Computed example of a mutant assay.
Amino acid sequence: MRGLGDLESAVMDILWCAETPLKVREVLEQLDTGKNLAYTTVMTVLDNLHRKQWAERERHGKAFVYHPAQSRAQAAAKSLREVLNESGDPEAVLLHFATTVSPEESAVLRKGLRRTARE
């Protein structure tokens, strides 16, 4: 995801797939990075994600539990908006993107645009 490092992205993937908020230890147990990560490393990553407003946390006893601050789709849309804003020519970017979509994605876009036009 745009704006996240590799480890932050891996942690967010775990949070997005979780059905309930997770403790640091639970995130650590699910991480499969090929590296032996320390508990404190994952705790720091989660703290950074909270500071960057990617994750929210609540205290449960002595520990925090973490959950995504927004859905994966919302985060992706926000990243796309940032790309468009930074491009200098959002119309050109959108038109180039439109040439790469599948027929199914094109149908979804048309449906979304019709819905937006009605609102």
Rank of each mutant, 00 (worst) to 15 (best):
R72E: 15
G5H: 07
R57P: 02
L113M: 12
T44A: 13
T116P: 00
N36C: 03
A117R: 13
G3F: 02
A10V: 05
G61Q: 06
A38Q: 14
R25Y: 09
K111L: 05
D32F: 01
P90A: 01
T100K: 14
P21Y: 13
E82H: 06
R118A: 14
E82A: 12
S102E: 09
A73I: 12
A107L: 08
A69D: 08
N85L: 10
G112R: 10
T100F: 08
A98D: 04
R114I: 03
P103S: 12
T116S: 02
R118F: 01
Q70H: 07
G88M: 03
A76P: 01
R115A: 15
R2V: 12
P90H: 04
P103Q: 05
N48A: 12
I14P: 10
E104F: 04
Q53C: 03
K52I: 07
T40S: 14
M1D: 09
R72Q: 14
A73W: 03
R114A: 09
A69V: 01
L15M: 09
K78L: 11
G61P: 08
R81Y: 05
L113G: 00
D13Q: 09
L22C: 10
A75K: 10
A117H: 07
G61R: 08
R59C: 03
R110I: 06
N85Q: 12
H60I: 13
T44C: 00
A75N: 06
Q74F: 02
D89Y: 01
E26G: 11
P21Q: 03
L46W: 00
Q70Y: 06
R72L: 12
V101H: 04
V65R: 15
Q53A: 07
W54V: 08
G3M: 04
L31T: 08
E119D: 09
G5R: 11
L28H: 07
V11Y: 02
H67W: 13
L94C: 13
E26Y: 06
L95Q: 14
E104Y: 06
K62T: 11
R2Y: 13
T41C: 00
L4N: 08
R115T: 14
A10T: 08
V27L: 06
A73G: 01
N85T: 09
G88F: 03
S79K: 02
L46R: 01
T99V: 09
L22S: 10
Q70A: 15
A117N: 05
L15H: 07
E105Y: 00
A75Q: 14
E56D: 10
K62A: 09
G5Q: 06
E29G: 01
H67L: 11
L28T: 05
K35A: 11
A38Y: 04
V24S: 12
R81D: 05
S102P: 02
A75P: 05
L4W: 04
V93L: 15
E119W: 10
N85R: 10
L4Q: 11
A77D: 05
A73K: 09
A77Y: 10
L109A: 11
M1W: 00
H96Y: 11
